[in-house]
């Protein structure tokens, strides 16, 4: 080996290292686009439950500004808390549901879902009469409804009392509130999708891309924990439209239902419609054997 081989080798190594670093920086260049839309405050934002009232106000204002910048829409993002003495429950009359998917559509618009994927928190299964076996259901039917010999099973978040999705979240980005609604802090979720694997009802959705909604179609009535436009790479789910229901209003899917198959209300109020249904109809829940204790009930007319 030549005398000068060592210095030459060192020089080559330095050259190689410099070249490598350059290529490495180039390889990661797309990350710039990822970090561009990110603010330092956004990056350092604390968990929803740890925000002081002042910090929360600042966060809401920042999110409103970001929505204006990115989507060109003026929106109001509020922080709505559960009302003491209220526990929500939902029931759905399968004898009346005709499978028209108007609830699916209403959810899509109310919750500012991505237009391209036509996302919605509700999926309607066309089921064969005489069977509750989901394996025989079909979510992709596209013919006149109600089809003979079929019934329709809309499925959305069941707001379980024992939610498997909440238990598995590694960072407590999802939790159950006192009115029974399971919410997600979209600014805390790390996007591991463990909750999506844990949910037995296909109720959770992931933002595979940043949602796209035209400015004039954006629903400006938004809440931090519900229908504000979600960031890319985080989980989302049905919140029983808490931006409406925590104000006493009906969820959008119920208002859209032309047949009145949907019944919603405060299960702690003995005079409520939902209580009447639970007391007088033979209701059942999906996958009861899993012990999730849904707050979403189904029933048939006698």
């Amino acid at each position: 080996m030549a005398e000068n081989s060592v210095p030459r080798r060192v020089a080559l190594k330095v050259l190689g290292a410099t070249l490598g670093a350059g290529v490495f920086a180039q390889a990661l260049a797309p990350l710039k686009q990822f970090t561009e839309g990110m603010s330092l405050q956004g990056f350092l934002q604390k968990h929803y439950k740890e925000l002081s009232p002042r910090e929360l106000r600042e966060v809401l204002r920042r999110l409103e500004e970001e929505t204006e910048q990115r989507y060109g829409a003026e929106v109001t993002i509020r922080d709505l808390r559960p009302t003491p003495g209220v526990q929500f429950a939902y029931a759905l009359n399968l004898s009346v549901c005709i499978g028209c998917r108007r609830c699916v559509e209403a959810c899509h618009h109310e919750n500012n879902h991505d237009r391209a994927s036509h996302n919605s928190y509700i999926r309607v299964l066309e089921m064969e009469q005489g069977s509750l076996d989901l394996e025989r259901g079909d979510a992709n039917y596209d013919h006149a409804v109600p089809a003979p010999g079929k019934f329709y099973l809309p499925v959305q978040c069941q707001q379980c009392e024992n939610p498997p999705c909440v238990r598995v979240c590694p960072v407590e980005a999802t939790w159950q509130e006192s009115d029974g609604i399971v919410v997600v802090d979209y600014n805390w979720c790390i996007g591991c999708r463990y909750c999506e694997a844990a949910c037995p009802y296909h109720a959770r959705r992931f933002n595979w891309r940043a949602p796209e909604v035209p400015a004039r179609e954006i629903n400006p009535d938004q809440a931090y924990l519900s229908n504000r436009i979600r960031p890319q790479g985080v989980m989302e789910k049905c919140t029983f439209c808490l931006h409406r229901t925590r104000e006493g209003r009906m969820p959008a899917c119920l208002e859209a239902c032309p047949t009145g198959a949907r019944v919603f209300g405060n299960v702690l109020d003995p005079s409520s419609e939902i209580r009447w249904v639970l007391e007088h109809k033979r209701v059942f829940v999906l996958k009861e054997e899993l012990g999730t204790r849904p707050r979403f009930f189904y029933f048939f007319d006698e």
Partner: peptide, 17 residues
């Protein structure tokens, strides 16, 4: 590894779609 790093950076830029 660099090709992988580039692909990963793209995944973050465009989303996991």
């Amino acid at each position: 590894a660099l090709v992988g790093a580039h692909a990963w950076a793209g995944q973050n830029a465009w989303g996991m779609a």
